[in-house]
């Protein structure tokens, strides 16, 4: 695969929930090895966009191709790693960190097959990448929010995906986990992994983002370099690690606002 190959191609995507349009015709292309952030206020449709790209939100119009294949006939699911914003309701029974991360290798293993010898290595590598190697036997529910987020990232990494899609990986996450996550992204970039993430704030990973797509009311309003001035953030003596929110987006940037206090 060369650097110009499109990994995600969304064309004219329209998604509506109960008659209310959330995406109003969106184009998005992510090429191999890119790190793209989807930004926008609450309700701008950024999470819906990546859910549509993964087939989790039904398209009313438009098309999605992954690795050049239309989503409907895309069979190489193991190439895609997905990190949801948080664990859903399906956690009535406790699970250890390792048990959750192990779900990530099933995409490569195939259905009803015996474990491969490389799986233990992949799980250990994924746990190390997010800095949770020493917590693998702990119950996920006892970890902090940021650590739980890292467990979900490790689960996706255990499948050794070529494309990693993350839904607000740093929302409500402590700074130590944000720094750990930025380190993980750096590591993945060295391996040529393509990364598409949704974010409220970029935090410590801002220097790693190559392109930002800003949504507003279901439409793309910016597609290019990170929209906010970064000059003074590059200054090592600068106090802030989070970009300041544009005023019109203030409601969606609560953590950044809180940091200013």
């Amino acid at each position: 695969m060369t650097a110009a190959d499109p990994v995600v191609e969304v064309r004219g995507a329209v998604v509506a929930y109960g008659g209310r349009p959330v995406l109003r015709g969106i184009d998005l292309t992510v090429t191999a090895g890119e790190v793209v952030a989807v930004l926008g206020a609450n309700g701008s449709g950024k999470s819906t966009l990546i859910r549509a790209a993964l087939g989790l939100a039904p398209l009313a119009a438009g098309s999605v191709r992954l690795f050049g294949t239309p989503l409907d006939s895309f069979r190489e699911r193991r190439r895609v790693g997905y990190v949801p914003q948080r664990l859903g309701a399906g956690s009535g029974v406790p699970a250890t960190v390792r048990e959750v991360v192990r779900s990530g290798v099933l995409a490569r293993r195939g259905f009803a097959r015996l474990p491969r010898r490389t799986e233990a290595h992949a799980i250990a590598g994924a746990l190390a990448a997010v800095g949770l190697s020493d917590r693998e036997h702990d119950q996920v529910g006892t970890l902090s929010g940021g650590q739980q987020q890292r467990v979900l990232i490790a689960r996706a990494l255990a499948g050794q995906p070529d494309l990693l899609v993350l839904d607000e990986p740093t929302a409500g996450v402590d700074a130590a986990s944000q720094v750990a996550f930025a380190g993980t992204v750096e590591l993945l970039l060295e391996h040529g992994t393509t990364i598409l993430l949704v974010a409220h704030e970029l935090g410590p990973m801002e220097p790693l983002i190559q392109r930002a797509v800003v949504l507003s009311a279901g439409r793309v309003v910016h597609d290019g370099p990170c929209p906010r001035p970064m000059g003074h953030h590059a200054d090592p003596d600068h106090d802030h690690v989070h970009p300041h929110a544009p005023d019109e987006d203030a409601a969606g940037w609560v953590p950044a606002v809180r940091d200013r206090a």
Binding site: L54, G55, L56, R75, E76, R77, R78, V80, Y82, P84, L87, G88, G90, S91, A95, E99, V100, S103, G104, L106, A107, R155, A156, G159, V165
Partner: peptide, 14 residues
């Protein structure tokens, strides 16, 4: 376990 724990992740995993 994977399906009961997180159905959407299981769907994306194929």
């Amino acid at each position: 376990f994977a399906v009961c724990h997180d159905e959407e992740f299981a769907t994306v995993s194929g």
